[in-house]
């Protein structure tokens, strides 16, 4: 399962390779080894949507991994005497006052840079947990069917019925010490159902494929069938959904932080900053614009990536 996330972009169902008309004859001469992953990658590389979103995501990942590379300022220390609500200096690239200062005299640029890590970690963490757990549930329900399917599907339905944010608020309210792990856990606890459903459907389609039958006829065990035959062929739609969902988890974290149910007040987080900024938007819009803008761009990048991957996977959209 963990290798699910290794190459989210490089997955393509067989049909995608036929030209849209399906009129092309089969290759008389077989070319060099061209894996389906490789073909999808070649296709994706040519999509501007994929290139732009991919570069943005790379940037965000870099910022969250090495914030020190981008700023030397301390996001926590404020200087109220000099910098109280200082306005942005848009010409001062990468300097402390680039995006201005907030009402505690802290550099907004530094806070945006350091806030990326929390948001991205929550987003990635939730996606990973949800994909592994939801994927497992969906795979077992889809593959074994019958009683297990009924049981697991009903449990999925129960969790599906809980409103995502409301549920997260209730859960997080029970914790006082809310760090990355608690928030990730709470969101994953409520968010796995979507992946489970998608995975279940994909596995049901795949398990009836002839090559699965062929593996059974050879005497292959359940483990081999699941992990060599079913999973690699059922994982494409899950990757698409997970990529798009990643953005929404980041939004959820920010919403919770905005509501005071996310990160503790001393943590750096886009959501908390947005919450702070709302006290005085009219006079100091810059305190809102930069953290909110970064949030939007990050989320958009993930959704765009998901779309690009889905288009590469779905021949009907060509």
């Amino acid at each position: 399962m963990p290798d699910l996330m290794k190459s989210p972009a490089a997955d393509e169902p067989e049909v995608a390779l036929a030209p849209p008309s399906g009129k092309a004859a089969e290759a008389g001469e077989v070319g060099g080894a061209r894996s389906l992953w490789g073909d999808a990658w070649r296709d994706l590389r040519r999509r501007p949507l994929f290139v732009i979103s991919g570069l943005l995501i790379l940037l965000v990942l870099l910022v969250s991994a090495f914030p020190g590379l981008f700023t030397s300022a301390d996001p926590g220390s404020g200087d109220l005497t000099n910098n109280f609500l200082g306005s942005p200096q848009l010409g001062h690239f990468f300097q402390d006052d680039w995006f201005g200062y907030d009402r505690q005299g802290r550099s907004i640029y530094a806070r945006v840079v350091f806030g990326a890590r929390n948001s991205v970690m929550v987003g990635l963490g939730v996606t990973l947990l949800v994909t592994v757990f939801g994927g497992l549930v969906g795979m077992l329900a889809g593959y074994f069917g019958g009683f297990w399917d009924s049981l697991l599907s009903r449990i999925t339905d129960v969790f599906f019925g809980i409103p995502f944010l409301l549920g997260a608020m209730v859960v997080l309210n029970a914790f006082t010490d809310r760090d990355v792990w608690v928030i990730t856990g709470a969101l994953a606890f409520l968010g796995w159902t979507q992946i489970a459903r998608v995975m279940r459907g994909a596995v049901i389609t795949t398990k009836h494929a002839d090559y699965v039958m062929a593996a059974k006829a050879l005497g292959a065990g359940t483990k081999r069938i699941l992990f060599r035959h079913v999973l690699p062929n059922a994982v494409a739609p899950v990757i698409v959904v997970a990529t798009i969902a990643l953005g929404t988890y980041i939004v959820a974290e920010s919403t919770l932080s905005y509501l005071g149910l996310g990160f503790a007040s001393d943590a750096v987080s886009w959501g908390a900053d947005i919450s702070d900024a709302t006290q005085d938007i009219r006079n100091n819009p810059h305190t809102l614009i930069f953290p909110a803008g970064m949030l939007s761009i990050t989320v958009l990048a993930f959704i765009m990536l998901g779309d690009a991957v889905r288009e590469a996977l779905d021949p009907k959209l060509r």
């Binding site: 030209p19 849209p20 008309s21 009129k23 092309a24 296709d43 060509r318």
Partner: peptide
């Protein structure tokens, strides 16, 4: 003919 990703298919 069909114009596809891999070239022109002369059907």
């Amino acid at each position: 003919e069909f114009h596809t990703r891999d070239g022109v298919v002369k059907a």
